[in-house]
Amino acid sequence: MKAQHDRTNEELLLDRIRDILLRDDRKTLSRVEATLQERQRLSEKVSPIIEEHIHFLKENFPREFQTEVEKIIDIKLKRSQEKIIELIFPKLGLLIRKYISHEIDMLRERIDRQVRKSWFGRLQRWMAGVKESDQILANLHQTSVEEVYIVQRDSGLLIGNASLNQTIDKELIAGMLTAIKLFMEDAFRRGEEEVELIHYNFYEIFIQNFYGFYIAVAIRGSLSLEERDQLSKQLFIFAEKELNVDLKNLSPSFYHQINNKLETSFLTKTTTQHNDQ
């Protein structure tokens, strides 16, 4: 009984010593616990550290993780190689086919011109009874750009235009041209190919397609392949310089500016070709 009483006293004494010794630690512990359990207090402590890390990552991500990211991309690319080829191949094939066909046509045009110039060409024309004066007249053709339209590709809404003559409503032309273009592309079902040229009587409408819009150029006369190529280049340069903007959110002043730029870039030039000279 006495021994048991002594042990209880001993335990009480030990508890008191423990309380004295651990008082400070326990206070700290309860403070830490409260901080951990209270979201706001925890956030106050942790957020600056996280933000600091995020900032560090933002600043140093390329340097720190470049190798890992490259490895992941490499693996992904290797795994998706077939899918990528499947996606790119038809487009690439179409582009190559178009390019080759275009180059061959250009070459044919150049050879024709050379043959016409040569004594063999003259002999051929003489044998066929074609007068030299008639040939010169045939070779002298004049083309001029009469109208230019920049049209939103999806909606057919007019972005800008310039015209030498008074025509019917320009917005209507843009809409109808888009509808005709879409109808042709849908009706003939030629995959991803797009309408690039509409020919009627003495006029041609040359269409240069871009991602979100297209430019339609109405030409009096008929352009040679070389001229068409030059016009296409000119349109690309114009688009890169003037239409590199968000076309869905245009300011009213943009229309006025772009119309003036179209006029000065395309309508003042008249092309006269002297193919044999």
């Binding site: 939103q152 590709r153 999806d154 909606s155 509808a179 879409l182 109808f183 592309e185 849908d186």
Partner: peptide, 10 residues
């Protein structure tokens, strides 16, 4: 109906 006819419509 060709889907392209509907694109860009309001």
């Amino acid at each position: 109906v060709p889907k392209s006819y509907f694109l860009g419509t309001s």
